[in-house]
Design a protein around this nucleic acid. Structure first.
Length: 422
DNA sequence: TCTGGGGTCCTAGGACCC
DNA sequence: TCTGGGGTCCTAGGACCC
C-alpha cells in the first residue's frame, strides 16, 4: 500500500499572506479573538525564525518578536481554501481522507505507476496545489506504507518537501522515533511508558500485546501494533464521512465578565450559537454537557440527558443552568465556559413538540436564523449578550473594580429573573 | 500575563431490568 | 432468607487530536 500524508505548511498564516500581499515576507501570527489573551493558531515561516510556535500564548509571541503582526483567524476563509485543495486531490484518486482542516491522507496504491512512482506523483501534486492556490500556500508530503508511518514521514519533509519511508526503512524509523511523536500518544501515556523503560516505537514493539493490554486496556492492543510499525486504522475516504457526534462551543471569558452574572451571559451566548448551528445542520441532540473553569484552572460541570432531542437554545440554556446549579452555581471567577450537545440525530427523526408555546419558540428561532443568514450574525442580539459585548469592547483603560461593577449592573439589568432574556 | 476552540474516544461506577 | 449474570442507560472524568 502507498499512502500519502499531505500537510499544509503554516496553513492559516500562509492563507492570510496569500490573501493580503502586505503580510508577505513578514512575521505574522494568526490567533483567536483580540479581547482576551489568546494562543497562536499558526505562525508564518518568518515568525518561526523567532522561535514562535503554534500553541504559544500571544503574549509569549510578542515577547519573542515585538514587531510581529497579529491577524485574527477567519475559519470560513480557511474552509473555502480547504475545499479548493480537496478538489485538486480528488482529481488524482477518490481515496482521500480529510483528517483535519489542513491535513489529508491519500491512498495512491493504484495510481503511482501511472504517474512515474510515489516521489514523482507527490511532486506533481505539490506543483498543482501551488498553481491552483497561489505560491504562498505550500504543503509537505510524507509517503509510507500506512497512515501511521506517513504522518511520521511528513515531519521529515517539512517544510515544503517530500519524504518517502520505504518498507525497508521502517525498522530504522521505529528505532529512532520517540513514542510521543505518534499521533495518539500524548504526555500522559508517554510518561507511563517512560516509567516502564519504553522510549521509542522499537521499544514498544519488543513488548507483547498481552503485557500492554494488561496495562493500557484497549489502547494496549493499538500500542502493540504501532510498535511494529502497523496501523489498525484504515483510510476513511471523504465520501464515507462519519456523521457528526456532537456540536458545542466554548469561550474563554473576558476579564470584565469573570463573575457569575457575566459567565451566565456568556453561557447564554454559547447556547444560542450551539442551537443555531444544530438547526443549520438539521440536527437535534439529547445530551447537554456543561464545562466551567475557575481561576485555578479547575474544571467543573456535568451532563444531563433530555427526554426528547432538541435544537432549541432555550432548552439547552435551561439545562446547562440546572447543571451549573447542581455544582453550586458558577465559580466566583469563571475563566472559561463551554456547552456541548451530543447524542445527535437528524432533526426529521424528532417528534414534533406538542406544546403551543414550544412551537411558537421554534418559529421565533427560525425567524432569527433567517435574519442572521441574511444580515449577518451581528444583526440580532439578546439584551444581556449585547450588554456584555459592549462592555467587553468599551472598558479598555477603566479601573478593574469599576469594570466589574458595571458588568454586574449590565447583567442584572438584562436578566433579573431565571427566564431567558429576550 | 497564566494557558483558545473545535472535536473524538475510553473507562468506570451505579441504576435498573430481565 | 438470600441472591447470579448480562445488557443498557446515565453520569463523571480524563486523554488526546489539530
Amino acid at each position: 500500500m502507498i499512502i500519502l500524508h499531505i500537510d499544509m505548511d503554516a496553513y492559516f498564516a500562509s492563507v492570510e499572506q496569500q490573501a493580503d500581499p502586505s503580510l508577505r515576507g513578514r512575521p505574522i501570527v494568526v490567533s483567536g479573538r483580540p479581547d482576551i489573551h489568546s494562543v497562536v493558531a499558526a505562525a508564518s515561516r518568518e515568525a518561526k525564525r523567532y522561535g514562535i510556535r503554534a500553541g504559544m500564548t500571544t503574549w509569549e509571541a510578542h515577547k519573542l518578536c515585538p514587531h510581529i503582526t497579529f491577524v485574527p483567524g477567519d475559519p470560513d476563509k480557511y474552509e473555502t481554501i480547504t475545499r479548493r485543495f480537496l478538489d485538486v486531490l480528488i482529481d488524482y484518486t477518490p481515496m482521500v481522507e480529510v483528517y483535519s482542516i489542513d491535513e489529508v491522507f491519500m491512498d495512491v496504491t493504484q495510481e503511482v505507476d501511472r504517474h512515474g512512482g510515489p516521489l514523482t506523483l507527490a511532486r506533481k501534486i505539490q506543483q498543482r496545489l501551488r498553481a491552483e492556490l497561489g505560491a504562498w500556500i505550500t504543503c509537505s508530503i510524507g509517503i509510507a506504507p500506512n497512515k501511521l508511518l506517513a504522518k511520521l514521514a511528513v515531519e521529515e519533509a517539512k517544510p515544503t518537501g517530500v519524504h518517502w519511508t520505504r518498507p525497508q526503512d521502517v525498522a530504522q524509523v521505529l528505532a529512532r522515533t520517540p513514542v510521543e511523536a505518534v499521533c495518539g500518544i500524548g504526555p500522559r501515556i508517554s510518561r507511563r511508558l517512560a516509567h516502564m523503560g519504553i522510549w521509542t516505537l522499537a521499544d514498544l514493539g519488543r513488548c507483547s500485546e498481552g503485557y500492554l493490554r494488561a496495562r493500557f486496556g484497549v489502547m494496549g492492543a493499538v500500542l502493540a501494533l504501532w510498535g511494529r510499525g502497523l496501523d489498525p486504522n484504515a483510510l476513511i475516504p471523504y465520501w464515507k464521512e462519519h456523521e457528526l457526534k456532537s456540536v458545542g462551543h466554548s469561550h474563554a471569558v473576558p476579564a470584565v465578565l469573570r463573575h457569575p452574572e457575566g459567565a451566565r451571559s456568556v453561557l447564554l451566548y454559547l447556547c444560542e450559537r450551539t442551537g443555531r448551528r444544530l438547526r443549520a445542520k438539521e440536527l437535534a441532540g439529547r445530551v447537554v454537557h456543561l464545562d466551567l473553569r475557575d481561576a485555578h484552572m479547575r474544571h467543573r460541570g456535568g451532563q444531563r440527558a433530555l427526554e426528547v432531542p432538541t435544537d432549541d437554545e432555550e432548552i439547552i440554556f435551561r439545562t446547562a443552568l440546572a447543571l451549573a446549579d447542581r455544582q453550586g452555581g458558577f465559580p466566583e471567577a469563571t475563566t472559561m465556559v463551554g456547552v456541548r450537545v451530543s447524542a445527535v440525530i437528524p432533526r426529521g427523526e424528532v417528534p414534533r413538540p406538542l406544546l403551543a408555546v414550544q412551537r411558537r419558540r421554534e418559529r421565533l428561532e427560525a425567524t432569527m436564523d433567517c435574519i442572521r443568514d441574511r444580515y449577518g450574525e451581528g444583526a440580532l442580539w439578546r439584551g444581556s449578550v449585547y450588554a456584555c459585548r459592549v462592555l467587553t469592547q468599551a472598558t479598555g483603560g477603566m479601573g478593574r473594580q469599576k469594570e466589574i461593577a458595571l458588568a454586574r449592573q449590565a447583567a442584572d439589568a438584562a436578566h433579573p429573573g431565571s427566564s431567558v432574556p429576550a
